[in-house]
C-alpha cells in the first residue's frame, strides 16, 4: 500500500485527506521536471545543428547527383523575398515562418529550425547545448534508476503504475468520464492515469535513454546490437525526437488535467504528499 489515510476533515467520510505520494515519488517527480526542462531546451539546440530526421544508419543529403531527398522531417529556410521558414514532413511542405525554420524579431529574423525562445542557449551554440544536455541526461538516468528501485521496493510500481487487467476493462468508462470532465479524486490513480504514467515512465523514459545512448559512437562499440536493434543510428535519432514530442504532448495534457482536477489539491499532493479525495463522480451519478 502506498497511501496512509489522514484524519477525516469533514463530516462526510468521503472527503478524506490521504497521504497519496511518498517522498521518493515527490522528489523524483520534481527532479524530472527540472531535467526535462533542460533536456528539451538543450535538445532542440542540438537538433538545430542538423535539422533533419532520417531512417537507417546514414543520413540523406541533398547533392547535385541525388537532388532533393525526402526526410521524415526537415526544417529549413528559403531565400525570399520574403524569406520563409519551411517544415517538411514526409515530403509535405508547410509554411512555418515565425516559429520553425525562420524566426526572430521583425527585421532581424534568423534561419534556425527551433526559435531562440525554445533553446538553451538562446543563440546557436551546439557545444553548450551538448554540455547542458549530457549533464541533465546523467541526472535523468540516475533519477530513473532511483525511481525504479523505490518503486519496486515500496510497491509504487505494482500498486500505482502498472495497469491491471481490471484497469483495462474499466478504461472505456474512465475515458468517458475524462471527456465529460468528471475527474475522479480517489485514493488511487484512475485507469487512464495508470496507463499514461506507465507509458511515460516505463516506455518513453527508458526509450529516451536507450535511443540517446544508441547515438553515441562510444556506446555503440560497447553494445553494437543496440543500434542494429533500433534500425540504425539515424532511426534512433528520429525515435529520440519522436519521444521528445510525445513527452511535450504528455506535459501539456498533464498540466491541463491538473488544472481541471483542482490545481491546489493536486499541487499539494505532489509537494506534501497529502491529497483530498472525493467520491468517484462516475459512481455518485444516479
Amino acid at each position: 500500500m502506498t497511501q496512509r489515510t489522514g484524519s477525516v476533515e469533514t463530516a462526510s467520510g468521503d472527503r478524506a485527506v490521504v497521504y497519496r505520494h511518498r517522498l521518493p515519488v515527490r522528489v523524483t517527480h520534481w527532479i524530472w521536471v527540472l531535467c526535462l526542462f533542460f533536456l528539451l531546451a538543450s535538445g532542440l539546440q542540438i537538433f538545430n545543428a542538423h535539422p533533419a530526421l532520417d531512417l537507417g544508419n546514414a543520413s540523406q543529403f541533398k547533392t547535385a547527383a541525388h537532388g532533393p531527398v525526402p526526410h521524415l522531417l526537415a526544417i529549413g529556410a528559403e531565400a525570399g523575398p520574403p524569406a520563409r521558414g519551411v517544415t517538411e514532413i514526409f515530403g509535405r511542405r508547410f509554411d512555418t515562418t515565425g516559429v520553425l525554420g525562420l524566426s526572430g524579431p521583425p527585421g532581424a529574423q534568423e534561419a534556425r529550425a527551433f526559435p531562440a525562445w525554445a533553446t538553451i542557449p538562446s543563440f546557436q551554440d551546439l557545444a553548450t547545448g551538448r554540455v547542458v544536455h549530457f549533464f541533465f541526461a546523467w541526472i535523468f538516468v540516475v533519477n530513473f534508476l532511483l525511481w525504479v528501485t523505490f518503486g519496486l521496493f515500496d510497491g509504487h510500481l505494482r500498486g500505482d503504475i502498472l495497469p491491471r487487467l481490471r484497469d483495462l476493462s474499466s478504461l472505456p468508462r474512465d475515458i468517458r468520464a475524462h471527456l465529460s470532465g468528471k475527474l475522479s479524486h480517489g485514493r488511487r490513480y484512475s485507469p487512464l492515469q495508470r496507463l499514461s504514467y506507465a507509458v511515460v515512465l516505463l516506455v518513453i523514459f527508458p526509450g529516451m535513454i536507450v535511443t540517446g545512448l544508441a547515438m553515441s559512437p562510444g556506446f555503440d562499440a560497447i553494445t553494437p546490437w543496440l543500434v542494429t536493434l533500433l534500425g540504425g543510428r539515424q532511426t534512433a535519432r528520429s525515435l529520440h525526437f519522436l519521444g521528445m514530442a510525445s513527452l511535450v504532448l504528455f506535459f501539456v495534457v498533464h498540466i491541463v488535467m491538473v488544472l481541471l482536477a483542482g490545481p491546489l489539491n493536486e499541487m499539494r499532493s505532489i509537494l506534501t504528499g497529502w491529497y483530498r479525495t472525493a467520491p468517484d463522480p462516475g459512481e455518485v451519478e444516479p
Binding site: 545543428a49 542538423h50 546514414a58 551546439l126 547515438m215 543510428r233
Partner: peptide, 12 residues
C-alpha cells in the same frame, strides 16, 4: 565504418 558528426548526421 559509420562517421558520426557532432552535428547529428552520419555517413558510411
Amino acid at each position: 565504418t559509420r562517421h558520426d558528426c557532432v552535428e547529428g548526421w552520419s555517413a558510411i
